[in-house]
């Protein structure tokens, strides 16, 4: 579903991502761990098409992102560290707007259903986003991905700043999405959350993917030791 073949990005002499080879299949959650500047966000930006690769190919559903920007966009959804959206619009209105830009036209009931699926309580649907907590806004972001029927979900530090309860709820939603076949690439600093939610975990350092581990084959402590040793 998501594939990087010898993917490299250089800014002058600085190599932000070096020769990344990675495949994330349908229903898989891949967590990218690493310090700031390790190349996690660059990887996500390359899959989003915001950055042009220096060499190599980033592809989604078999389509090269660089050459099939419009087609790949219809298959993916993106949730940044902080989902701001439009604070003057309600959760429902935000969802309606983003869905319509994705080419979908939903009834109010369907939109409310997506927000429910994303875990946002019904009483908040009609409130302006400006009054939402970070966790609630992340849920609207998830609802946008669900409404879009995205096959691929790209997440950049999605649990950063969330309280444990909200973070746990978010993990559960991701598991539900992966169970329905969505391929998820998540950049994070949160080792514990990565091990809990991901199927595989990659650790990056200075633009290189240093190691890839099956999440189920390693304990939280072992992962932490591996991470500290790697970075």
């Amino acid at each position: 579903m998501l594939e990087a073949n010898n993917l490299t990005k250089k800014y002058g002499d600085y190599t932000a991502l070096n020769n990344l080879n990675l495949t994330i299949g349908k229903g898989e959650i891949f967590a990218l761990l690493g310090q700031n500047g390790a190349g996690k966000t660059t990887t996500i930006n390359l899959f989003l098409g915001f950055v042009e690769p220096t060499s190599g190919v980033a592809s989604i559903d078999g389509l090269n992102v660089a050459t099939h920007a419009e087609e790949t966009k219809t298959r993916l959804a993106y949730i940044p560290e902080t989902v701001m959206l439009y604070p003057n619009l309600t959760g429902l209105e935000n969802l309606e707007y983003f869905s319509s830009l994705a080419g979908f036209s939903y009834e109010a009931g369907q939109l409310a259903g997506f927000l429910d699926t994303a875990g946002l309580q019904s009483s908040a649907h009609g409130n302006r986003l400006g009054g939402y907590s970070k966790g609630m806004r992340q849920k609207v972001g998830i609802a946008i991905a669900i409404a879009k029927k995205a096959k691929v979900l790209l997440l950049d530090e999605p649990t950063s700043g969330l309280d444990p309860k909200a973070s746990n709820e978010f993990s559960e939603i991701l598991k539900t999405l992966s169970a329905s076949g969505t391929a998820i690439l998540m950049a994070t600093h949160d080792i514990f959350r990565a091990r809990e939610v991901a199927t595989r975990i990659g650790i990056m350092k200075e633009g290189n993917l240093q190691s890839v581990t099956e999440a189920g084959a390693i304990s939280a402590n072992e992962l932490e030791q591996l991470y500290l040793k790697t970075v």
């Binding site: 966009k73 959206l85 983003f98 830009l101």
Partner: peptide
């Protein structure tokens, strides 16, 4: 505030 990235991930160019 990062909204542009989300917008650009929709169908609109």
């Amino acid at each position: 505030n990062g909204v542009l990235k989300i917008l650009l991930c929709q169908k609109a160019s």
